[in-house]
């Protein structure tokens, strides 16, 4: 949710190393990050902080690394898993790398790489020679109004078809 960013970030881990000169904090072992509805879990997390002490990027590795957030009050939680989850705090962009899976309200995207903009509500899934992109959309419930283009979070148009071959 937009107000997530106004919440404190709480992190727990088995151990941590902070390098103020490099602006880097590395957390290892059962890493859990919670900020409002945002929740990220993994084995290792590297946070990069700018010289004013603001978070710029977060990189989480896990088997898998997990991401969860409510990005729209009217929609269900977005859940994602991947070998690596990169989060750019400045643009609100999440990049899922390796066995990437993103789900919301019964719809799902999977592939080797998925880029999800929490602010623009756009998804870009790209495949490679080994793995293609798979999209699953739940059948429209009878009588349910078809979502218009700008409201649909996981509308097919959001994923470049070229990526699906």
């Amino acid at each position: 949710l937009p107000e997530d960013a106004e919440q404190p970030v709480n992190i727990s881990a088995d151990n941590a190393r902070f390098d103020e000169k490099a602006g880097e904090a590395v957390y290892r072992g059962n890493v859990v990050v919670i900020q409002g509805t945002l929740k990220v879990q993994g084995d290792t997390m590297t946070l990069r902080i700018d010289d004013k002490g603001a978070l710029t990027t977060a990189r989480t590795l896990g088997k898998p690394a997990r991401y969860q957030q409510r990005t729209d009050p009217a929609k269900g939680l977005v859940n994602a898993t991947a070998d690596e989850i990169q989060f750019d705090h400045r643009t609100g962009t999440i990049t899922l790398i390796g066995n990437a899976l993103l789900k919301q309200d019964g719809a799902s995207f999977s592939g080797p790489r998925i880029v999800y903009s929490t602010e623009k509500k756009q998804i870009e899934a790209s495949g490679n020679s080994q793995q293609r992109v798979q999209l699953v959309f739940p059948p429209q419930a009878r009588g349910e109004k078809k979502p218009t283009k700008d409201k649909a979070i996981l509308a097919p148009a959001a994923a470049p078809l070229g990526a699906a071959q």
């Binding site: 960013a5 106004e6 970030v9 992190i11 088995d14 151990n15 941590a16």
Partner: peptide
């Protein structure tokens, strides 16, 4: 070394 708990103030 262990049992790390961190709370960052919101940055924006």
């Amino acid at each position: 070394s262990s049992a790390v708990e961190v709370s960052y103030a919101p940055s924006r």
